[in-house]
């Protein structure tokens, strides 16, 4: 059974926000009115967070991508009263939208604030270039949603690999953010596979796990030569 994980190389990341936009378009994340966005109801599955990096005497303020960390021991699944969020055998923390009652306990429990709440039913412009992706369902208002590691892509890749009678190769299952990263800073793959690039990166001396002291075992880790806070 594979276990999916992501590595984000902050030495390569330029903070261009392509991953954020790619994710928003790929996953039909609702576009919120400017006034509502100002009120803090803006929706991103892949958000950018501020980090301070220091090297010798220099301190640099920069933005780094922050998806859902798909923890191995997720705090969000424990607090859900209806079982709408759970960790599947492949390590993906999933959200079942039709079970979600919108109580937002999971949002409060998540230390990374990776979950977002649908305040409005998504509106899509007719005859626009920004039409919803048919591979991903449209969420209704009043439910919590989050990054799914583009699991709709996994469904199709799994099927093709199954038909050809082989395992999913390293680099076959790519997420939208990884695909659109201009500097290849995002690496995604099976961390159980010892030959995969994400496994090799996870053993690097540059690895930094965000809020590692919480012991939720996040499966997204950052790589940086500098001290990041």
């Amino acid at each position: 059974m594979p276990k999916w994980a992501m590595a984000i190389d902050l030495d390569k990341c330029t903070g261009c926000e392509s991953c954020m936009i790619a994710c928003k378009v790929e996953n039909n994340v609702a576009i919120v009115d400017p006034e509502q966005a100002q009120a803090g109801r803006v929706m991103y599955w892949m958000d950018m967070m501020t980090a301070y990096e220091s090297e010798d005497t220099q301190v640099v303020r920069r933005i780094v991508p922050k998806p859902c960390f798909h923890c191995d021991e997720p705090p969000c699944t424990v607090v859900c009263p209806v079982g709408a969020t759970y960790r599947n055998p492949e390590g993906i923390v999933a959200q079942v939208y039709h079970r979600c009652i919108g109580c937002r306990y999971c949002m409060a429990a998540c230390p990374y604030t990776a979950k977002v709440f649908n305040w409005y039913a998504p509106k899509w412009l007719e005859d626009s270039a920004c039409r919803p992706n048919p591979d991903v369902s449209l969420r209704m208002s009043g439910v919590v949603e989050k990054c799914s590691f583009c699991s709709h892509r996994l469904q199709q890749i799994k099927e093709i690999a199954d038909l050809e009678g082989r395992r999913i190769e390293d680099g076959e299952y790519v997420t939208a953010c990884q695909e659109n990263c201009p500097t290849d800073a995002i690496v995604f793959g099976d961390i159980e596979d010892k030959d995969s690039s994400v496994y090799k990166l996870s053993k690097s001396y540059r690895v930094k796990r965000y809020m590692d002291d919480l012991d939720v075992k996040p499966k997204v880790f950052y790589l940086s030569r500098r001290t990041t806070e």
Binding site: N88, E90, S151
Partner: peptide, 8 residues
């Protein structure tokens, strides 16, 4: 019967 195997 994992949710993610069919739902998206």
């Amino acid at each position: 019967n994992d949710c993610l195997s069919c739902h998206r």
